[in-house]
Nucleic acid binder design. Structure first.
Lengths: 127, 127
DNA sequence: CCGCATCCAGTATGATACTG
DNA sequence: CAGTATCATACTGGATGCGG
């Protein structure tokens, strides 16, 4: 059973802000990486995705794909063949999200060195 | 630059992957909301932040601010007065990140209804 | 080949009480 | 006012084995 932690209250627009709703979805460990990979490669099979993100386990890849599929970000095509084949790709909704997470990734790529430096040597007395 | 150096396919560098590094930071439950609030209000005191995000606990607000401060996203100014006063604001680095999370927020606001509808409609097999 | 179920550990989050 | 400390709990994520 789903336990919704999002409280719907009218006195607070922050609590029910879409930011929390959406961020809860791809704020997890793998959703963004899956979306980026699908965005780069188009249609991918389950195994291809797993190879593209070796650190992900089957369980998490499945869970991530289910989540994204439930939100309409990713579409899932099952082919009743032998051997079975399942292909994933971004929906149009997912592709509208892609530029944003790419922008975020780009920012991360640009500023990661600075962040790591800040985190390691927190010797800045004044800025 | 348009070249995508963030591809995570064959060249697997999870440890150095900026996406994972940065996403681990503000992929938590509150960092984004804190950044948005600071971005909207400029300088804010601890209590003001807590009032602006009522669902957050003191502990999590403190932890979130410490994390953001360690990364150089947020600056913290302590005034040795009575009563004590501590003020927070985004650093310049934090402000460069702000547009990206705002873009993300905007996407979330635009498509949340669709996502919620997708999420609700996909679960009709379970009753 | 694809995916689920179960068990298990680490961590993120939260409530409460206490301190300077 | 602005935290810190402690405990309790929920959830995430990983390992493994089973099923279609």
């Amino acid at each position: 059973m789903d336990n919704e932690k999002i409280i719907i209250r009218d006195d607070l627009d922050i609590a029910n802000c879409p930011v929390r709703n959406v961020l809860d979805r791809f704020g997890d460990k793998w959703s963004v990486l899956v979306m980026i990979n699908l965005g780069n490669n188009g249609i991918m099979r389950f195994n291809e995705l797993q190879k593209s993100i070796p650190d992900i386990s089957q369980k998490m890849l499945t869970a991530t794909l289910r989540s994204l599929e439930a939100d309409g970000i990713v579409s899932r095509s099952v082919y009743a063949e032998v051997p079975p084949r399942v292909e994933y790709q971004l929906t149009e909704l997912g592709e509208t999200l892609l530029p944003h997470i790419r922008g975020l990734s780009q920012w991360a790529f640009t500023h990661m060195a600075t962040i790591l430096k800040n985190r390691a040597g927190k010797t800045d007395k004044d800025s």
